[in-house]
């Protein structure tokens, strides 16, 4: 499609995606041992100070260091996003592979349930789950895991059905390989690229959904630092301290964008460009 004929095109999506997400992840990991200030320590003398030294991103209305809080908040957000996607992608992939490979009535049932869950946007379903089970971080993670399973299941099912039509699977069956061995040796390794790309986009979705829920006060509870919660708190002080809104907002954008670019990059790479 109009690409230049010479050389290999740089995969900028992959490069920028890894860089941005890597930076955010680094900040998050470092925050486990070190933050410039205690993220929850209040300081009455330094309320709403502009970015500069020693407070890189300024301070909020309690005099807490925005940069430290962004670091700690990113850690919580990434932790939730990764654990949710790890759990839901493994369960979803299993459901999808079994459903796609064996087909029949099992496939029919699993996919109808899938469709029902997929018809609702994740924030909406999370709101519904939270309104039934109550507010809290564990409930939120639980809700997201359930909500993220169907899209993985559908993606893996599509991959498996596409692969089943290919000759090498037929050949494997012809030499007498068992179903599970074929799944493990041939189907799963070939679905790796698609799987990784979906996990990356899943992280984008989880970050956006988690921050929305925390913004509404239904996710991570104070005083634990959370990017969404910080945005909600900063809203009353937007005129005097816009940095306390921009810091966490840009952090959310960074994680989501980094994971999104990475997903695009992995997808393009898998197509052999």
């Amino acid at each position: 499609m109009g690409r230049k004929a010479y050389g290999k095109k740089r995969n900028w999506n992959l490069i920028f995606g890894s860089l941005i997400l890597g930076t955010m992840a680094l900040l998050a990991v470092v925050s486990l041992w070190y933050t410039p200030f205690d993220p929850n320590a209040m300081n009455g003398l330094w309320k709403n100070t502009a970015p500069g030294l020693p407070h890189l991103l300024g301070t909020d209305h309690f005099g807490r260091d925005v940069f430290s809080r962004v670091m700690a908040g990113s850690k919580n957000t990434l932790l939730i996003a990764c654990s949710v996607n790890l759990a839901s992608s493994v369960i979803g992939a299993a459901v999808g592979v079994i459903s796609g490979y064996f087909g029949g009535w099992l496939d029919e049932i699993l996919m109808r349930v899938n469709d029902a869950v997929l018809a609702f946007p994740s924030v909406l379903l999370a709101l519904l789950v939270i309104s039934i089970f109550g507010v809290g971080m564990h409930n939120l993670v639980f809700a997201f895991v359930i909500l993220f399973i169907p899209s993985y299941a559908r993606m893996m099912r599509g991959e498996v059905i596409r692969m089943k039509a290919m000759e090498y699977i037929g050949s494997a069956q012809a030499i007498g390989m068992g179903s599970w061995r074929i799944l493990w040796k041939h189907v799963l390794p070939n679905a790796r690229g698609t799987y990784l790309a979906s996990v990356a986009i899943g992280i984008t979705n989880a970050v956006l959904a988690e921050s929305s829920m925390s913004y509404l006060g239904l996710g991570i509870q104070p005083p634990t630092a959370s990017l969404g919660r910080m945005l909600a708190e900063s809203q009353g002080y937007m005129m005097r301290a816009p940095w306390s809104a921009l810091g966490p907002g840009l952090a959310i954008l960074g994680i989501a964008l980094g994971a999104g670019l990475l997903s695009e990059g992995i997808r393009v790479k898998g197509q052999g460009f």
């Binding site: 929305s212 913004y215 969404g228 809203q235 937007m238 816009p242 809104a245 907002g249 959310i252 954008l253």
Partner: peptide
């Protein structure tokens, strides 16, 4: 659009309020 689709709606709202409102 790559950047904009990664902005959650509530942050978009805050940005609009900040830039066009304040």
């Amino acid at each position: 659009t790559q950047v904009f689709q990664c902005i959650p709606p509530f942050f978009m709202g805050i940005l609009l309020t900040l830039i066009f409102g304040l």
